[in-house]
Simulated scan of single mutants.
Amino acid sequence: MHIQTAAVQTLRDFEHGAVVPPVHLASTFELDPATEDGAFAYQRGSNPTRAQLETVLAALDDAAHGFAFASGMAATAAALSTLEVGDEVILSASVYGGTYRLVDLVLPGRGITGRFVDDLDALTDEDFTPATKAVFIETPANPTLRITDLRRIAELAHRHGALVIVDNTFMTPVLQKPLALGADVVVQSATKYLAGHSDLLAGTVTTNDDRLADAYRLAQKAQGGVLPPQDSFRLIQSIKTLPLRLERQQASAERIVEHLADHDRIAQLWYPGLHSEEEARVHASQASGRGAVLSFELAGGLDRVAFLKALRFPAYAVSLGGVESLICRPATMTHEAMTPEARANAGISDEMLRLSVGIEHVDDLIADLDQALAAAG
């Protein structure tokens, strides 16, 4: 089944012939007094509406198990919850700021070490120690859009008994399926493309590993960071239009990248595959598109604030993946948890801007960018 069909048709056969799933709001469920059995008992453990969403999430990733959490960071925390005292996780230096905050400030208190490296593709066998239990990958990276070879890192990590966890938020299952490339776990901030309307917080985890699935099920029940029924229903409905939305957003992003590539008021441009021919080759081998996020830096002498104030359509706000275009300054917004030294090491300058392209007409977006660049000085 193509993903465009799976997004719409995974759930069927609802009561009364309804073509959309019902919302089950109950926090508790009646059990059989004789056996104390029941498909559901308490909403934190499981809920029919959330279970339906998790069926859809697994189907999109061709996974055996799917889990829905209250936010992308709750999903990431659950994915890392199998790490124990003395363990180490390797991450890219340019990882999302929220993940950096978790690994840098929270995990050390649990006896877990995070090691941030400049380029995951430069990892060799010598970089792994007995303590290395996981490699956490974003590809494309946020916000540098650098590419990591998932097949190579999966093979390398598995030789040393380490898990491979991939944050697939930027690509979604529409453009990239990390489990098929050797990853053990996929996490997403469903707040972004899956929900798609900047009105819902959610996070997802998918895996084919039964043992890991048991751990994530425990994380849901023990830690309680689960997605409520109403939001689960809304996410099911939003996912139905995900392939269409992303197709439009990506096509517009490609046009904008072409327009800005030779613009005399753009000093640097970041987009998947632009860094090198090798990264372009790797990305093309593991993804079916380049997504709808790009980053850029204005040419010297231009006024960043004037540019941002002049924009009519992209809102100056964090997040991405919504139907409306958004622009942000990673150094002070998405990656403010990182020290200036860490940001510099990750290639995130104070002047870098990250643009998430929405579904507005691309000609309007390009005209808006041009007039704002003209207003910048």
Score class of each variant (00 low, 15 high):
residue 20 V to T: 12
residue 20 V to Y: 07
residue 20 V to E: 14
residue 21 P to K: 00
residue 21 P to I: 00
residue 21 P to R: 00
residue 22 P to R: 06
residue 22 P to Q: 06
residue 22 P to C: 02
residue 22 P to A: 10
residue 22 P to I: 01
residue 23 V to T: 13
residue 24 H to G: 00
residue 25 L to Q: 08
residue 25 L to I: 00
residue 26 A to V: 00
residue 27 S to L: 12
residue 27 S to F: 08
residue 28 T to I: 08
residue 29 F to M: 06
residue 33 P to N: 05
residue 33 P to T: 12
residue 36 E to C: 10
residue 38 G to T: 03
residue 38 G to C: 03
residue 38 G to E: 06
residue 38 G to H: 02
residue 38 G to M: 03
residue 40 F to P: 02
residue 43 Q to V: 01
residue 43 Q to I: 00
residue 43 Q to S: 13
residue 44 R to W: 11
residue 45 G to M: 14
residue 45 G to Q: 14
residue 45 G to S: 11
residue 45 G to T: 05
residue 48 P to Q: 10
residue 48 P to M: 04
residue 49 T to P: 10
residue 49 T to K: 09
residue 49 T to W: 06
residue 51 A to P: 02
residue 51 A to N: 12
residue 52 Q to R: 10
residue 53 L to A: 03
residue 53 L to Y: 10
residue 53 L to K: 07
residue 54 E to I: 04
residue 55 T to F: 01
residue 55 T to D: 11
residue 55 T to G: 08
residue 57 L to N: 04
residue 57 L to M: 05
residue 59 A to G: 01
residue 60 L to F: 04
residue 63 A to W: 08
residue 64 A to G: 05
residue 64 A to Q: 09
residue 65 H to E: 07
residue 66 G to N: 04
residue 68 A to I: 12
residue 68 A to Q: 05
residue 69 F to D: 09
residue 69 F to M: 11
residue 70 A to V: 08
residue 70 A to N: 14
residue 71 S to R: 07
residue 72 G to N: 10
residue 72 G to W: 07
residue 73 M to R: 07
residue 74 A to M: 05
residue 76 T to R: 02
residue 76 T to M: 13
residue 76 T to N: 10
residue 77 A to N: 11
residue 77 A to W: 01
residue 77 A to L: 05
residue 77 A to H: 09
residue 79 A to R: 02
residue 79 A to K: 02
residue 80 L to H: 01
residue 82 T to Y: 04
residue 83 L to P: 01
residue 84 E to Q: 14
residue 85 V to L: 12
residue 85 V to D: 15
residue 88 E to L: 03
residue 88 E to N: 02
residue 90 I to S: 04
residue 90 I to P: 02
residue 90 I to N: 05
residue 90 I to Q: 06
residue 91 L to R: 03
residue 91 L to W: 13
residue 92 S to V: 12
residue 94 S to Y: 09
residue 95 V to C: 10
residue 96 Y to T: 07
residue 96 Y to K: 07
residue 96 Y to H: 13
residue 96 Y to Q: 12
residue 96 Y to D: 15
residue 97 G to N: 13
residue 97 G to P: 06
residue 97 G to T: 11
residue 98 G to W: 03
residue 99 T to A: 14
residue 100 Y to C: 10
residue 101 R to D: 15
residue 101 R to Y: 15
residue 101 R to V: 12
residue 102 L to W: 08
residue 105 L to W: 08
residue 105 L to V: 04
residue 105 L to G: 06
residue 105 L to P: 00
